[in-house]
Design a binder for these strands. Structure first.
Length: 721
DNA sequence: TTTAGGG
DNA sequence: CCCTAAA
């Protein structure tokens, strides 16, 4: 068949709204596309590198500043040097890139933790506790090691409680975080779209008050303020600049830098315009810190943790992006996984994960606080116990006691070792981990909460698949598990900054061959149950707010670009200009993560090569009405036979839609349009669209036949005769 | 790599 | 959606 000249089509598109397609991401698009075949869960790993480093720190002894949020900051606040170092390390590991996301989590023990024992959870939950008070009462005796089992259990439980899907749903942990979730995610994951923030219109993003669903959430989720620490500390801050300004009502942050406080709290104030503004301009997130103080209540008889009050503080730093709940959740999971891997024997690991999974599952189904709390408690217990057990093992096995220790004032991102324990013990503090890439896709109609859930599930899935910890010494991976620390050179003093850890997918569980650490592949075990939506950064040109669906339909196809990709999420009804089509319309899909992923599935990606079991079929992602609309629009404009252009024009951001997919979809649409409604299945496509499909199909086929014979009409005539 | 089609 | 022949 003859295809219309592309040049022509381009001209047509000339509306101008559409920027040259080429400039956009042709390459990446293709690349992604090409990846497609390799997409199988096990295999795909490239694309987006999610770097999350998790730092676990228990502040204990002696630090008066412990309880003080501000004071605690130093703990998490990486110095430029650290960041750099971390970065280098990551790079060495080869799966990181510039846009790597770095997150840190710091755990703190509440000073008053003892006092709170037995207190009612809710009651004891002051949103804004006086940090100082805590610091004063801080128990200095407990060291990480000694108190870790219980503490960790509590902390985790608390974290889980705070960030569990359920809490998200309840709105407890949303606040502005929710509002910004999409943009943030996009930012966080899309390395190819540095400017995406520009796309975000303040209107889109902000403003709507955080959807707080449950009033109680506030009480329950005491998180209070996260503030961003000084962005100045961030090396790259200057570059991006902008910022997410934050308001720091709750805390006094003297630093004015671009720090942004991101109150995750349920407080309504949550949404700060500033932040919004920041979005548009900020490309990098400086740092966000959120603190939560939550008492973790445990069942009686549980480890020492019961009734304890736990305070957890997270700090996230991203050189490139803002961090949101997802990151936190991810971090949590990573940390969890780390602990498991570190502490639990391999044998026990799996069960542990399973339990965790169950926990989440159940949580999802149980909405009442009470119930959740229970689960929570259980979880804590479980963790604690396991931790205890494994911890012992760990110690015995290595003869070195590894401990997570918080040394105040140490900023080293990688790791630190202290010698307090004379002799041959090495105390390490692991501050960051490189996390396997995660690819996530979500249906556009998905809610932010479901997105969060999806991410969480994805992470869980990964964890379930098994993670292993990689050790880096002087930037090199230490693969020989049998060597002693001493043999490897990790002893006493020499190390400090020379040691690093990374989380790697553990392929062992899978039949596939055992790949070297680097190429470990992940399994995508989890397929998301729900359709995923992707958030993709749109090109800056489109700020959507403006794009109104109706317009699109009516107007030029070009503008219609299915923006689908983008941040729809951002648009919540309020933000969209066209209220009506809203739900369905928002076109689509936005790639949330950078990637290419198979939707739903999370694939950790390492650049590595994939495993033999590549062949997995891509998950099925039914076209949404909005996608169909975009497709129809594009085809109307470009005609059939130019699927690549259609892809670029309308689905450029939908990484999972290849031109072949579009072509296939068109094929089915044509078929669908030609059968009776009763015979149609799946999400019904508006008749109007189907009519357009037939019309376009007829029109373009006619064009084709006309042009077909290259030879002029005469020739055609001859042929016919 | 894209298209076009069959499976 | 996949697979492939063709281009």
């Amino acid at each position: 068949m003859v295809f219309p000249k592309r040049s022509t089509s381009e001209m047509e598109s000339g509306g101008g709204s559409h920027v040259a397609e080429m400039p956009r991401v042709p390459k990446s698009a293709r690349g992604k596309r090409s990846i497609r075949k390799k997409e199988s869960p096990g295999q795909m790993m490239c694309a987006f590198d999610l770097l999350a480093s998790v730092a676990g720190k228990l502040l204990d002894e002696g630090d008066g500043s412990l309880g003080n949020p501000s004071a605690a900051a130093p703990v998490v606040d990486p110095s430029p040097k650290d960041v750099k170092q971390f970065k280098n390390e990551v790079m060495d590991q080869d799966s990181c890139n510039e846009s790597a996301l770095v997150s840190h989590i710091a755990f703190q023990r509440p000073a008053n933790h003892h006092a709170r024992k037995g207190e009612d959870l809710e009651a004891s939950q002051p949103l804004n506790e006086d940090p100082k008070a805590k610091s004063e009462t801080l128990d200095k005796e407990s060291s990480i090691i000694s108190c870790s089992k219980a503490e960790l259990g509590c902390n985790f439980a608390a974290i889980a409680d705070r960030w569990s899907p359920e809490s998200v749903e309840s709105g407890a942990c949303t606040g502005d975080a929710v509002a910004n979730a999409m943009p943030m995610i996009t930012a966080g994951f899309h390395k190819n779209a540095p400017d995406m923030f520009n796309l975000l219109d303040p209107m889109d993003v902000d403003v709507k008050p955080p959807p707080l669903v449950s009033s109680d959430s506030t009480g329950e989720m005491p998180l209070y303020g996260n503030k961003i620490r000084r962005s100045t500390s961030f090396p790259r801050a200057p570059k991006g600049g902008m910022g997410f300004t934050v308001d720091r009502d709750e805390e006094d942050d003297d630093d004015k830098s671009s720090g942004c406080t991101h109150p995750i709290t349920a407080t309504n104030k949550g949404f700060r315009p500033n932040c919004t503004a920041g979005h548009s301009s900020v490309k990098k997130l400086l740092a966000c810190k959120c603190r939560k103080v939550a008492p973790a209540k445990m069942q009686k008889g549980d480890l020492s943790c019961s009734g304890e009050h736990c305070e957890i503080s997270f700090s996230f730093f991203s050189e490139e992006h803002c961090i949101d709940d997802t990151h936190i959740q991810t971090s949590f999971n990573i940390l969890y996984s780390y602990l498991n891997s570190l502490i639990l024997p391999d044998v026990d690991r799996k069960p542990s994960f399973r339990n965790k999974k169950m926990y989440y599952t159940r949580q999802r189904t149980q909405r009442s606080t009470f119930k959740r709390r229970k689960m929570f408690d259980r979880h804590s217990t479980l963790v604690s116990e396991e931790y205890a057990k494994s911890n012992a093992k760990f110690t015995a096995r290595d003869s070195h006691t590894a401990s997570l220790e918080a040394n105040k004032g140490t900023n080293s991102m990688t790791f630190q070792k202290s010698h307090e324990t004379d002799d041959c013990h090495v105390n390490l503090r692991i501050k960051s981990f490189k996390v396997p890439e995660l690819l996530i896709e979500i249906p556009e109609t998905a809610t932010v909460g479901s997105l969060k859930k999806t991410v969480l599930e994805a992470v869980n899935a990964i964890l379930g698949g098994g993670l292993r910890v990689g050790v880096l010494h002087h930037g090199k991976k230490v693969r020989d598990d049998n060597k002693t620390l001493m043999q490897v050179g990790i002893a006493h003093d020499d190390v400090l900054d020379n040691l690093g850890f990374s989380l790697e997918p553990n392929s062992t569980p899978h039949p596939s061959q055992h790949s070297p650490p680097e190429d470990t592949e992940f399994l995508e075990t989890v397929d998301t149950t729900e359709p995923l939506a992707r958030i993709a950064p749109t090109d800056s040109s489109s700020k959507h707010g403006e794009i109104d669906a109706s317009q699109e339909l009516a107007l030029a196809p070009l503008s219609a670009n299915y923006q689908g990709n983008d941040h729809d999420s951002v648009y919540s009804p309020g933000g969209m200009s066209s209220p009506d089509k809203a739900s369905t319309n928002w076109r689509a899909i936005v790639p949330v993560t950078p990637a290419y992923s198979n939707a739903g599935a999370i694939v950790p990606a390492n650049k590595a090569k994939r495993s033999p079991e590549q062949g997995q079929r891509r998950i099925r992602r039914p076209f949404s009405v909005s996608e169909v609309e975009a497709l129809v629009l594009a085809v109307e404009k470009l005609g059939t036979g130019r699927w690549r252009d259609v892809k670029l024009r309308a689905f450029d951001s939908a990484k999972h839609r290849t031109y072949v997919d579009l072509k296939d979809k068109w094929k089915t649409l044509v078929h669908t349009a030609s059968i009776s409604p009763q015979q149609r299945r799946g999400e019904p496509v508006p008749q109007e669209l189907l009519d357009r499909v037939l019309a376009a199909q007829a029109y373009w086929s006619q064009q084709q036949t006309k042009l077909q014979p290259k030879t002029p009409p005469l020739a055609e005539a001859r042929l016919l005769t």
